[in-house]
């Protein structure tokens, strides 16, 4: 398990590898832990507020956002993560993780809240039901020279984003479920965004074997914040 797999040079500084937690209340926690460990991170599961101590970064996995929200508030994890976000903790959210990071949810279940931090409005299940779930290759020049393998599973999409948000990748808006086209200005809907130390994708790199987004998070977000 060499750090050289994913990181580029600076072995001395990276000897120990960054400490990355995975938000582990529900969802595909295991997949993220495996990718991060293979890229040389020291990984841990985050189930309660004290687990956040000493982390260099946090990943919020895929899963059901309404369940993550409910459990994170019930267990007192939500305010602690929000405080860490406000303190500049790098966080990467995939799918449900994107919804958790969004300041606004267009179609929450009753009482659903998010952690917030990313100045975006997301639509849950924006592409339709499971039979509409898809995988594809996306051009993401900021992240990878090669197209990125992206798996969208009942995925959210970014309907609106504030001026501080950098759009890293988009898909044609025609893939959105009809009736969910909420007046997008262009024919494309963002599916990967970054704002400062917060990174979010509608899709799931952790189930593909394409590690480019995890590398980007470790090298370009976490390392710069350390």
């Amino acid at each position: 398990m060499s750090a050289a797999v994913g990181t580029t040079g600076d072995e001395a500084a990276e000897a120990a590898g960054p400490a990355i937690g995975v938000f582990a209340l529900q969802g595909d926690v295991r997949e993220h832990l495996r990718v991060l460990a293979a890229l040389g991170a020291r990984t841990s599961a985050v189930r309660a507020a004290p687990d956040l101590a000493g982390l260099d970064g946090l990943v919020i996995p895929g899963g059901e956002s309404s369940v993550m929200d409910k459990l994170s508030r019930l267990l007192g994890l939500a305010p602690a993560v929000r405080a860490a976000i406000d303190d500049g903790l790098p966080v990467y959210g995939t799918c449900a993780g994107m919804i958790m990071l969004a300041d606004r949810i267009a179609n929450p279940i009753t009482g659903q809240q998010s952690l917030g931090g990313l100045d975006i409005t997301v639509q849950r299940n924006a592409f339709g039901s499971q039979v509409d779930s898809f995988e594809t290759r996306l051009a993401v020049p900021a992240v990878s020279a090669d197209p990125v393998h992206a798996v969208f599973i009942r995925a959210p999409a970014v309907l609106q984003s504030g001026p501080g948000v950098e759009v890293l990748a988009s898909v044609p808006a025609e893939r959105l479920e009809s009736g969910h086209d909420c007046g997008l200005a262009t024919g494309f809907v963002p599916v990967a965004v970054r704002q400062g130390n917060l990174l979010a994708t509608s899709f799931h790199p952790e189930v593909t074997g394409d590690w480019s987004f995890h590398r980007y998070f470790l090298d370009r977000v976490v390392r710069r914040a350390r």
Partner: peptide, 24 residues
């Protein structure tokens, strides 16, 4: 899947939804 040709109903997409249900 080749570039720019989205595919539905692949084993990865099908098994992926179950992955997201874990712990639930």
């Amino acid at each position: 899947s080749g570039q720019g040709s989205p595919r539905t109903g692949t084993a990865r997409v099908k098994r992926g939804l179950a992955d997201m249900l874990k712990g639930g």
